[in-house]
Write a protein that binds this DNA or RNA. Structure first.
Lengths: 338, 338
DNA sequence: GTTTTTTGTGCAAACGTTTGTATTTTTGTA
DNA sequence: TACAAAAATACAAACGTTTGCACAAAAAAC
């Protein structure tokens, strides 16, 4: 009978230098008594846990919950558990979360920064301790390691170009905080599309920090009344929605008078009337990529320092189409060149 | 200098039998060297961790992600971390998740069962080991301990009554699986409302397992063509949405010809045209209650065996209102009596 | 039949805390 | 100054694994 802890440990840890007879016996007894190994003890001894920490601004946002789900789909079958913290977009909470995860001796950390966060020093300790750190969506190049991001630039470029092709010239852009890579890249894509089509960028048509329904509505009303625009490209579906509803309520014909497109393809985009053109991000797929990056980097000391772009897709809907145009829902112009 | 681990431990664990001088010194040195206590070691020694496990069907569903957020909002400040698993509605995954959490020596478990799950034996070990188990939303009385649920019965009753008051008599009910408490209770509320108003329940108007957009559309089309209904009360906003869109596409006037109400007040309910009447569940508040139940039950051996009902609210919108009626959005007929 | 190799187990230390008990130091009192 | 009581600290065991090393038994080689 396998008596000593060492033999039991070896038997349960799969093949090693233990005879098949004793292994069978150990397994029999173990399952018989409903034995559950104490992961804490094992982790303590091994110096590493099978837990991965994840820090997101908010768990209950459509995008983030889908990324989490994508991460989980890969990491769980691989034997990892997920320890999740939300920062509520506060820098202080982000710092706290990092410390909590470190205290829990997670073997890797996944993070999407809060919009507030400017100081990334607290991540130095993670990297210096050899813990893989994977950033996604809201990332900074300040920190070494893999970054998984949407192709914001290309999405914005395509969306803006789509509006231009539908005969818009005076296209407003509702941006987020330009401190955040995500919104900066969308802004760049917008500008690039204008430039490609010989349209001068007009800073009067740029509205910063405009990602909520209300601010979107306000900005749209103001710009429309001033007669400045014939289209809006919003970096957020929410501000696009605000614009759409406000203008509609004001009696503005959409898309005839003003065309609108958003970003993220929130579930409501397909349901509003008229349907809201948007850029689909594959959040679940992004989560998968994040998880794969984690697995690739755990246990090694030289982290790959790459930025992976997850393809996005323009989904044209009625809110941006020239009246009478056919809607090609299957426009799947994936990440080709520009 | 506080040298021995014991003094350090006591110093950091707040007041005890250690002089204020040494405590200060210990703290100084500890912060100076960026000391992070090893929670694994502490948990191993103490026999309990500050981690709570949570099992949900899907992380990325609006309702569940909001419950998670609500749990986290209370548990994190209280010093607990959340270990989350999703079951993808599969019984096998639920069993696995339970074992993973047990191996991780979580100090409590929160669960909402998958629709598939019929066998709850694997929870016996949890309860017998004295680990608090809190169920929410999808619960079973088979397992002892707190259950936090929506007031499905009352929500369904009010919703159905609302349709009746708007002159509907032949009200179909799109239900989920009646094996699941949630859908069973909604069905009961529906029947009770009919009975209260002298309407006979017609089993031909009950559609089981109808909670998706597509099945909702199909059922609605069939019932409408057969001329059997003047209203639909769906146990899910998704099947309600399916019905609404399908009928609208068929040229049926909503609410004039057919009135529709759903359940859950998904974000899209307010945005579709016409607005979809629904029953709002306060998922975040439910999460708070779950967290409080956890905190109340951790460390005690006699678990309170109660069922807490979280109030729901009927939100009437155009899809169910007699034409010309005023919409009282502020109908906040909270959990009073029937 | 002896020696060498291979294979399978046991021993004991280690991971970093916590905590009961023993020991030292300090304080107070006679 | 001596002695008890109180306060502060040290000692050591324990939590449940893993793992290098030693050792025994079996198998292979001579």
């Amino acid at each position: 009978m396998g008596i000593t802890p060492s033999t039991v440990s070896r038997a349960l840890a799969g093949n090693e230098r233990v005879s098949s007879k004793t292994r069978a016996e150990v397994l029999r007894v173990a399952t018989g008594m409903g034995y559950q190994p104490n992961i804490l003890a094992a982790s303590l001894r091994k110096g590493t846990s099978d837990t991965v920490g994840m820090i997101v601004p908010r768990i209950n946002r459509h995008f983030f919950s889908h990324v989490i789900s994508g991460v989980e789909a890969i990491l769980n079958p691989a034997g990892f558990s997920l320890l999740i913290s939300q920062t509520h977009e506060r820098e202080e909470d982000e710092h706290k979360a990092v410390h909590t995860l470190l205290r829990n001796r997670v073997s890797a950390i996944i993070v999407s920064h809060s919009v507030e966060t400017r100081n990334f020093d607290h991540y130095d300790k993670i990297v210096s301790e050899g813990i893989p750190l994977v950033q996604f969506d809201r990332v900074t190049e300040t920190i070494a390691g893999p970054r998984i991001v949407n192709d914001n630039f290309l999405g914005a470029l395509r969306s803006t170009r789509h509006l231009i092709r539908n005969n818009c010239r005076r296209i407003a852009h509702f941006a987020g905080s330009l401190h955040v890579n995500v919104y900066r890249e969308r802004f760049e894509g917008y500008k690039y599309a204008l430039q490609q089509n010989g349209i001068d960028f007009d800073s009067g048509l740029l509205v910063e920090n405009c990602i909520l329904q209300e601010t979107g509505g306000d900005a749209a009303e103001e710009l429309y009344r001033a007669g400045k625009i014939d289209a809006i490209f919003a970096a957020s579906d929410f501000s696009a929605l605000g614009a759409l509803r406000r203008l509609k309520r004001m009696g503005v014909a959409i898309p005839e008078e003003i065309k609108i497109s958003g970003f993220a393809n929130e579930p409501f985009a397909a349901l509003v009337d008229p349907g809201l053109t948007s850029v689909e991000q594959n959040a679940f797929e992004m989560g998968n990529q994040v998880a794969r990056a984690i697995i690739n980097n755990i246990g090694r000391d030289d982290f790959v320092n790459e930025e992976i772009h997850v393809p996005v897709r323009l989904i044209p809907r009625s809110s941006s189409l020239t009246t009478g145009a056919t809607i090609s829902i299957q426009n799947s112009e994936f990440n080709s060149n520009l």
